Simulated assay, not measured.
Amino acid sequence: MRKIRVALLHLLPRVGDIPYNQQLIEKAVKLAAAKQADWIITPELAVSGLQFSRKIGTNWIEQQPDTWMNHVRMLVKSLKVNVFVGCPERSEDGKLYNSVFVINRNGDLAGRQRKAATLSDGWCESGTVIEPIDLGGIKAGVMICADAYTKTVASTLLAKRADIIVAPSSWGPGLHGPNGEWEQRSIDTGLPVFVCNRTGEDETVAFWEAESMVLKDGKRLLSHKSRQSAIVTFDWDVEKMNVLSSERQLI
């Protein structure tokens, strides 16, 4: 039986407080690595918070990898884990993107995914390239938050032979909250969906009841919500596509 241990970092970032959020991510990554996690996943825009542009603007966003991302790469290499980091980026031509960076256990930037469904974000462009990222023979497809609204991203990842869909998100309940989209994408593709959501509150959006979860064929195999940062760790049977065991730690 082949299995991987996955850690969902269900974090409480502070909107616009970049140093605080970076330190929180590093702390959580170290704690997850101590639990022998193979994959460690942060929420969407874990570095900045979702509504950062209302508070600190966008001039601070750099091309990636920047100084901090290179620091994280060295940390990841020392811990021998794979990490998905939600962070804004500036392209070489100055365009801004809501991105997830995947750093492998060798500290290499194995890939990135730029969010496609950005109409509600306002500050960023839509990503157009959708490619799974190989992590030790398992292809991880990244579907960022509202990219789950339609089947386009998930179906493209399936067509390109992704094995698992990782969904870093900042999506709380409410008027435009999640309403079965992740479940439907797991039905559409037949692929497991690992949703890493967050808690807390930004400028006008509350995430206190937001859930991180693991789904297969429309069914929730695991779910978590909390009012403080937490690490949700689970063992995943790669062959049978099922959760073997799980544990949670508040931080």
Rank of each mutant, 00 (worst) to 15 (best):
L24M: 10
L24A: 12
I25Q: 02
E26S: 12
E26R: 13
E26P: 07
E26M: 10
K27L: 14
K27G: 09
A28N: 07
A28F: 01
V29M: 10
V29F: 04
V29P: 08
L31C: 08
L31K: 15
A32S: 15
A32D: 02
A33S: 15
A33G: 10
A34G: 15
A34D: 15
K35A: 12
K35V: 07
Q36H: 15
Q36D: 13
A37P: 11
D38K: 13
D38C: 05
W39R: 11
W39I: 13
I41P: 10
T42M: 02
T42N: 00
T42A: 03
T42L: 01
P43G: 04
P43H: 12
P43D: 02
E44C: 07
E44G: 08
E44W: 08
L45I: 04
L45A: 04
A46D: 00
A46G: 04
A46R: 01
V47H: 00
V47T: 04
V47C: 01
S48I: 00
S48E: 01
S48G: 03
S48H: 01
G49D: 05
G49R: 05
L50K: 13
L50Y: 14
Q51W: 08
F52G: 00
F52A: 00
F52I: 02
S53P: 06
S53E: 13
S53I: 02
R54P: 01
R54L: 10
K55G: 03
K55L: 15
K55D: 08
K55N: 06
K55Q: 13
I56F: 06
G57R: 05
N59S: 13
N59T: 14
W60R: 04
I61F: 00
I61G: 00
E62D: 06
E62S: 14
E62I: 02
Q63N: 10
Q63I: 09
Q63C: 06
Q64Y: 06
Q64C: 06
Q64V: 08
Q64I: 07
P65K: 10
D66G: 10
T67C: 09
W68S: 11
W68P: 13
W68N: 10
M69G: 14
M69H: 06
M69N: 07
M69D: 10
N70G: 09
N70W: 09
N70D: 11
N70E: 11
H71S: 12
H71W: 09
H71I: 06
H71T: 11
V72K: 07
V72D: 02
V72F: 12
V72C: 15
R73N: 10
R73P: 03
M74C: 14
M74N: 15
M74E: 14
L75S: 07
V76L: 05
K77D: 05
K77S: 12
K77E: 11
K77G: 03
K77W: 03
